[in-house]
Amino acid sequence: MSHSYFEANARERLAQLLDAGSFRELLPPGARMTSPHLPPLDAPVAFDDGVVVGAGTLDGRPVLVGAQEGGFNGGAVGEVHGAKLTGLLERALDERPAAVLLLVESGGVRLHEANAGLIGVSEVMRAVLAARSAGIPVLVLIGGQYGCFGGMGIVSRCCDAIVISEEGRLGLSGPEVIETTCGVEEFDSRDRALVWRTVGGKHRYLLGEADRLVPDDIAAFRAAARELLDTRPDLSLAALEAEHARLGRRIDRFGDCRDARDIWTRLGIAAPERLPLLDTAEFLAATADRRA
């Protein structure tokens, strides 16, 4: 039986992603480590500040996991929320798990505590890069209703690999933010088809911004994460020079494109206008060996 990753909340995702019954939470809700910055603005708090962190096993191998709850403030990062993720990644330096899994669902920095959130995200980024530098892979799963935007969009790309579903969205500034700031002619956030083909999982996968495209099923995310456990982090000069060349080629090759369909056409994909209609298996078959 399939369980939608998109529909599940953070705790439900963890329960099904990890080996049954293996999850042990750190700073659990009973610790009541809530944000002190929300009550002065008359905003509700959550007992876990919108992120669940802890340890478990995947296929019998020890992993550390963090899962953001999109339903609470869109998964936005505040002081406590960010510090929980940073502490988790630093714990990896001591415990040396097989990997750290981040189930990211976030609009970015929580405006009620914007400075604390921005600094917190930078601490998460440094902790991700420190964990990877110590040889511990950090894997990201994206498939929730709120997508992965703002600082967490940058954090995700600092990690070793991203698993995304078609329903997952990944970017920096959300379409609503761009429309509000630059006008509807720049980015019409209500044009759902435009939004999905710009920041949705299929385009991210074709562009090489995400490593695996999976159906919206927690078991599929689990299978992909399991396969990626043996990823060897590589932050060497050679690896970053290769990434630099790849990102430079992307600008040269697609810099004048104004729509994802232009990029898909240049990738040599037959009938690119049909891509949004295909299910994951059909899509992967139609685009095999055509990724940027």
Partner: peptide, 10 residues
């Protein structure tokens, strides 16, 4: 803030 930068994976 632009559609193009998002399209290309800023």
């Amino acid at each position: 803030l632009s559609h193009r930068d998002e399209l290309l994976g800023i």
